[in-house]
Amino acid sequence: MMRVLGAVALSLALTGCDVTSDGEALTDASAWTYIGELAYAPQDDELLTAAVELADAAQGFALFAEVDGCAQVARLEDDTSTWVSALESGPSCAACEERFSVIAGAGLLVHLPPEPRAGPARLRLGKIDCETLTRARPSADTPASSVRLWVRELPTLPRELVVPLRFHHGRFSPRASDAESEALLAEAAALLAPTGIRVVLDGSSTDDTLPDSIPWFEGDPSALEPHVEPEDGVVDVVFAGCLEHVHPELGTHTLLDGLVPRIPAQAAPGAGIFLRGRACTAASLGPISVPVESQARVLAHELGHYLGLYHRLEDTDADTLMAPNPALVANPVFSPAQAERMRLHAALLSEPMPDR
């Protein structure tokens, strides 16, 4: 069973930060409670925010953050455990008790301990350099920046949820026809059905503005944003051309079959699933031929990322669709723990985000 916080709104205790103009937490029409705007603390070289204590939140919570630039969870602990102890809790942190993606502009964070417990949770966010994804080094010329936070209790965990997908086809899409789209959806639905996630097609459109190639980096989702149409409860799927992860400092280019801007992707800038439709060499300007079964695996894998799953560093299951290359998995399934996490995020997806 899912651990759920009490029915009342979370109570908050903040030290050294501005909550609201009248000193009280604001609650919008949804389940979200506005915590306030936090500055980075001078005693921490303008790197970390003041600590936020979330009373009765050790059982888990969802947090939505709007940030100037980029930020990362720097500390997360309760009276029993330390989940994050440093500013390196990203997707590749094998030593972290819990991993959180970098927040570039805005992002959702979900904390769900494996066992129910009582007491508060304490959180600090840290400033990250958007070009290196390492801790920022503020100088006298660095403009002031801040973090705005909303929090809510976790929803109950349903046995099955519907996740609407909206297809956007560029000129390299191998699934532009209705028949091809329906075939891909059917294959992906079969992979996802055992998790309790039922995907349906909410609509499709043609995007003539999609370029031949889309570069992406975790600290800069701006190339993705023009090609999605954010709407609560709907996941955009963009059939693009070449997709590359381009590191601005190292100059490396990594070919991608699919991507989401962050994990989880809900309400992040550029939130959507992007699928590659052509090779990335200059001479290869036509669409690639992708078997529908292979692309369905990539779509299911990327939806797993969208709904909060990382690669299998955190799993004992060596053979799941969240392996780094799902095409090589012999038995394409999600583990029970992965299925539970996906349903939790799908439940959050089906409810309104904060009214900002």
Rank of each mutant, 00 (worst) to 15 (best):
G90S: 12
S92K: 10
C93Y: 08
A94M: 05
C96N: 06
E98W: 12
E98K: 08
R99L: 03
R99Y: 13
F100L: 03
S101N: 13
S101G: 12
V102E: 04
V102M: 10
V102S: 04
V102R: 00
I103K: 02
I103V: 15
A104L: 05
A104H: 11
G105M: 08
A106P: 02
A106E: 11
V110E: 03
H111K: 09
H111L: 07
L112V: 15
L112P: 00
P113C: 06
P114C: 03
E115A: 13
P116Y: 12
R117A: 14
A118M: 10
A118S: 14
A121P: 04
A121Y: 12
R122I: 15
R122E: 09
R122C: 03
R124T: 14
L125K: 07
L125S: 06
L125C: 05
K127L: 14
K127T: 09
K127R: 15
K127C: 07
I128D: 01
I128Y: 09
D129P: 14
E131F: 10
T132E: 09
L133G: 07
T134I: 00
T134H: 13
R135Q: 15
A136F: 12
P138G: 09
P138C: 09
D141A: 13
T142R: 06
T142H: 11
T142Q: 10
P143H: 08
P143F: 13
P143D: 08
S145L: 02
S145I: 01
V147P: 01
V147K: 03
R148Q: 13
R148A: 14
L149R: 01
L149S: 02
W150H: 06
V151P: 02
V151N: 00
R152A: 06
E153V: 11
E153K: 06
L154H: 05
P155H: 05
T156E: 14
L157A: 02
P158I: 11
L161R: 14
P164I: 04
P164L: 03
P164V: 01
P164T: 08
F167Q: 11
H169K: 03
R171W: 09
F172L: 13
S173A: 00
R175D: 06
R175G: 01
A176K: 07
A179G: 02
A179K: 10
E180R: 14
E180W: 01
S181W: 01
A183N: 10
A183L: 12
L185A: 03
A186K: 11
A186E: 14
A188W: 01
A188S: 14
A189M: 02
L191A: 01
L192A: 07
L192V: 06
A193I: 00
A193R: 15
T195H: 06
G196C: 02
G196M: 04
G196D: 04
R198A: 10
R198L: 01
